[in-house]
């Protein structure tokens, strides 16, 4: 019983209040602690790496296997760099899910109330989450892209159809994939803040990346060629594809368009985070 009464004494060993103001740097540290203290972070990032590297390698094996049976036309459209990076298609889903969860994981558990109580101005939370997640996906995405490229080329080298890192455009494509995955991750963070619901966030991200291109394909071809290059997947794809569609935007213009999607998602998320009751 004495322990019960004892516990009611409040220790106070804190620095003066003027030294403990909320700042973006501190919120960044807080978001970093949150990011690295969840198991889902590691699982999802690992899935991103495995999908980029493993799925890429698998596709390269398959190509190697029936390369000799390809028509001349098909061989002409084959690009070893592009082929080795194709695992991105699934990896972007893993990274997108994790990005959406940055906010929706807090809304579904109620954590957002603690977060917003600690940072009542709210917007620093969005910027800090975007920076933490952006840097993490950039590192993971770039390393995965490098690994996928070199493993893929090692597979192709047995038939001497591989590319070398020094070939024109190759570094842009490999590092570009890291940037693309980062941008997709940031769109996902923005969508999570905007929609505040995991299912809605993931559904709209997948809709943007998977369903929208299919819908556009069903349009008359003149419309298609005007819209398709500006879809986020295709616009960003221009950066890391060496042998793409003829109508594709130039690499950095494409990436610029993708960045507009990023800005739109984050601004939308910021507006909702600031205005709506937590």
């Amino acid at each position: 019983m004495s322990a019960v009464l004892e516990a009611a004494r409040i220790p106070t060993t804190l620095p003066p209040e003027s030294e403990t103001k909320v700042s973006l740097g501190r919120v960044l540290k807080s978001e970093w602690i949150k990011f690295r203290s969840l198991r889902s972070t590691y699982w999802t990032l690992a899935a991103g790496i495995v999908l980029t590297v493993g799925f890429g390698a698998l596709l390269c094996w398959a190509m190697l296997d029936h390369f000799s049976q390809l028509h001349a036309e098909e061989r002409a459209s084959f690009n070893p760099t592009d082929h080795s990076l194709r695992g991105y298609y699934l990896a972007q889903m893993a990274i997108g899910v994790l990005g959406v969860l940055m906010f929706t994981g807090e809304y579904s558990t109620g954590m957002i109330r603690a977060t917003v109580s600690a940072v009542p101005r709210r917007l620093p939370v969005l910027w800090a989450k975007a920076i933490v997640f952006g840097v993490a996906t950039w590192v993971v995405g770039t390393l995965s892209a490098l690994a996928a490229f070199f493993i893929g080329q090692a597979i192709f080298s047995s038939k001497h159809i591989g590319a070398s890192f020094g070939d024109p455009g190759v570094p842009r494509a490999v590092f570009g994939l890291g940037l693309y995955l980062t941008a997709i991750g940031l769109i996902a963070v923005g969508l999570g803040a905007l929609l505040r619901n995991t299912a809605a966030g993931i559904a709209s991200l997948f809709g943007l990346l998977l369903v929208l291109p299919l819908l556009v394909e069903s349009l008359p071809s003149s419309w298609q060629s005007n819209i398709s290059p500006y879809l986020p997947g295709n616009a960003g794809g221009a950066l890391f594809t060496l042998h793409g569609d003829p109508g594709q935007l130039s690499p950095w213009v494409g990436f610029g368009v993708l960045c507009i999607y990023v800005a739109a998602a984050l601004i939308g998320g910021a507006a909702v985070l600031r205005r709506r009751d937590a």
Partner: peptide, 29 residues
């Protein structure tokens, strides 16, 4: 507040550490 405000996947210590970090409070707190 009455409704819980904790991420279920995070440990209590990390939850408090993340909140403390926003104000630069020392981890011994």
């Amino acid at each position: 507040l009455e409704a819980r405000a904790v991420h279920t996947g995070r440990s209590a210590w990390n939850h408090l550490a993340a909140l403390a970090a926003t104000h630069g409070l020392p981890m011994r707190r």
